[in-house]
Computed example of a mutant assay.
Amino acid sequence: MRELVVVVGTRPEIIKMAPVIRAAEGTFERYLVHTGQHYDAEMSGAFFEALDLPAPDENLEIGSGTQGEQTSQALVGVERLLLEREPAAAVALGDTNAVLSTALAASKLSTTFGHVEAGLRSFDRTMPEEVNRVVADHVADLSFAPTEQAVSHLRDEGVTEGVHETGNTVVDACHEHAPLAAERSDVLERFGLDGDYVAATIHRPHNTDDAERLRAVVDALDGASVPVVFPAHPRTQRVLADLDYEPSGSLRLVDPLDYLDFLKLMDHARVVVTDSGGIQEEASVLEVPCLTVRPNTERPETVEAGVNELVEPAELSARLETLLTDADARDAMTGHPDLYGDGDAGERIVAALDAALD
């Protein structure tokens, strides 16, 4: 049976790649590689077991470092394993350095490379993720675009061969994992929540590297009329500690949650506040209104559908309170769970890989 190398580097990647891994069973021998770009205890065997997935076959243990350090070390590691294993194809998802490294290594060895979540664009080249997306798309043999708009972005850049509109695996993942979260997570009971709360997460450098901007965000969350549960990324925790910031109102800063806990927390929230790309998608699938604290997004479908809004820190408090107190405003931002497909993206990706390799 042909071998498919699947490369991931972060928790969101394995969550969204899980439907591809499951769908590939019986069609490919799966060889799962974790670059270790972001060390996370949840990327241990227990995390994969919780999602009923096989543990990684190999961990490159890249760890933290500069963009160049992470990319170069992962490039060497992925190149080595591709040379050793000679797989039929390699796939990676998204926009991290793990994706860029896999794309470059595969293209230089003439290994068929499939980019899952191709064609996303924020059009902001100051974001390392945007550079990674563009480069990966332009060396990919197969581009698995989640939406028609993503296909259009690729076409505008001259990428037309090997492009498949598949839907986004985030839909598959939410459908597959939400029942696990409902069954296995007690997060609502642990925090004493009854559904009248906000789920928040802020971690991008655009927000965390600007102390004044981050303080404005947390002040807005702290002033909300309902509890705001904020699992804080280590980067965010460090900056808040440097600011000697202590919430005095509604904000509840907690340590990062495991995936099933956060999925359940988000599923039952009245509003989600984030700067994460993936959470914008998940909120739309779960039909929870989303406020994104960023000047731009590579998920414009959510904004165009009215289920997500881009807000600046100075606007966050007023807009959040409107959604918490005005049922009509909240209802207007609820719905459209099918923006990213019908939940069969994993199957389509594997079918397209199978056909292309034949």
Rank of each mutant, 00 (worst) to 15 (best):
V229Q: 02
L320T: 04
S284C: 01
V271A: 08
V229T: 05
G335Q: 03
F230P: 02
V254P: 03
E304D: 14
T292W: 03
V218E: 04
T325P: 07
R190P: 07
V285S: 00
Q237Y: 05
P256N: 04
E301Y: 01
P247W: 09
E309Q: 14
P289T: 05
A200W: 06
G195S: 10
H203R: 02
V226T: 07
E312A: 15
L243T: 14
E304G: 14
R238W: 06
P247D: 10
R294A: 08
D222H: 08
E315C: 04
I279F: 03
G249S: 10
L188T: 05
T322I: 12
L323G: 03
D242F: 11
V288M: 04
F191D: 06
V228T: 12
E304L: 11
D196S: 15
E212I: 10
V229G: 02
T236F: 01
A318H: 11
V307L: 00
A211L: 12
D328Q: 14
R235E: 01
A318T: 12
L193P: 03
R330M: 08
P300S: 12
H268I: 10
R204V: 04
D242C: 12
A232R: 01
P256S: 04
T325V: 15
L253A: 09
E321C: 05
V198Q: 07
L257I: 08
V273G: 06
V307N: 00
P295M: 14
T208E: 02
V239D: 03
R294E: 09
V229P: 01
V226G: 04
L316A: 04
E281Q: 01
H233T: 01
V273D: 06
